[in-house]
Design a protein around this nucleic acid. Structure first.
Length: 281
DNA sequence: AGCCAGGCCCTCC
DNA sequence: GGAGGGCCTGGC
């Protein structure tokens, strides 16, 4: 398990590394999951947990689920080990895993990701939590639960704009209202298949193919999902020459990759994304 | 100072 | 059906 790269690979936005001075490999990370403030680090042979709120014994199995520790990573990596580029990325970030996040928080986070960046997304998400989420006791270092759909719906577009969310607020407000009213059942999509989930999610305002695939991959157990963003697009063009003949749309590039990598295309996506993004440009 | 960011949507052709 | 422009705000 590579905890630092898993936490810092742009899937989730509420984790903070405690004490930047220590090496990332041994660093503590604190986040808010399952309405608990949780601090974790990688230790030899496992994950060490400190629980500021709630019982560690209760959180441990949830965290195991969240970190997807039951995914057969060796088998998965073998199944997508199809060429030198993905192999190189898997070698460099060996042990990096997908997360299994809360679908609602994941949906909101990736609606916020449009023409943004990880730093700003994290700030937006944290601002929404601190303004509209329930305060979680933790002495001086207060953190807040991620706001429920109803809490965000009640906040409304203007107050979301006031937090600096920009045009994303005009999508977030109606989506929050729809989820709060039960027009869409995000958790039910865990039982649905990929294409049904994709259709449902892309029917929401502000949710296109890319954002929907992020939500499907990072929270709804659809490991064949393959979000195509600018970094993945660069990886596909530079390393796989996907565009060589005619220009392929993002959706066609996504379909190409899903066909090429197969049922664990989402893991391939994560390695390609992380690897290409850290190369910069 | 101006351009561009981890997209989406709408308008035109 | 797809190319092009607009959208908020912040950072370089």
């Amino acid at each position: 398990m590579d905890l630092p790269n898993t936490i810092k690979s742009g899937q989730a936005f509420r984790w903070r590394q405690d004490g930047k001075e220590t090496e990332a490999a041994e660093a503590w990370f604190s986040g808010v999951v399952f309405d608990s403030i949780v601090t974790i680090r990688h230790v030899r042979g496992g994950i060490e947990i400190r629980c500021a709120t709630g019982e560690a014994e209760e959180v441990a199995p949830l965290l195991r689920d969240y970190l997807r520790l039951n995914d057969p990573l060796d088998d998965i990596c073998r199944s997508i080990d199809l060429d030198e580029h993905i192999r190189s990325a898997m070698t460099r970030y060996s042990g990096m895993r997908l997360l299994r996040q809360d679908p609602w928080e994941c949906l909101v986070s990736f609606i916020c990701s449009a023409t943004s960046n990880i730093r700003r997304i994290s700030g937006n998400v944290e601002e929404m939590a601190s303004h509209f989420g329930r305060r979680l006791a933790n002495g001086g270092d207060a953190r807040h639960a991620f706001p429920r759909p109803g809490e965000l719906a009640e906040a409304g577009e203007q107050r979301l704009r006031d937090l600096g969310l920009g045009f994303r607020a005009k999508y977030l407000a109606p989506v929050a209202r729809m989820v709060a009213d039960g027009e869409v059942d995000l958790f039910a999509l865990r039982e649905a298949d990929y294409s049904d989930g994709l259709e449902t999610l892309t029917s929401l305002p502000g949710v296109g193919d890319k954002v929907a695939n992020c939500v499907l991959l990072f929270s709804l157990d659809k490991l064949e999902a393959f979000p195509v963003d600018v970094w993945v697009r660069r990886a596909l063009q530079e390393w796989y020459d996907v565009d060589r003949k005619k220009k392929l749309s993002d959706v066609d590039q996504r379909r190409w990759a899903q066909d090429y990598f197969g049922s664990y295309a989402g893991y391939a996506n994560q390695y390609l994304f992380h690897s290409r993004r850290l190369m910069g440009r």
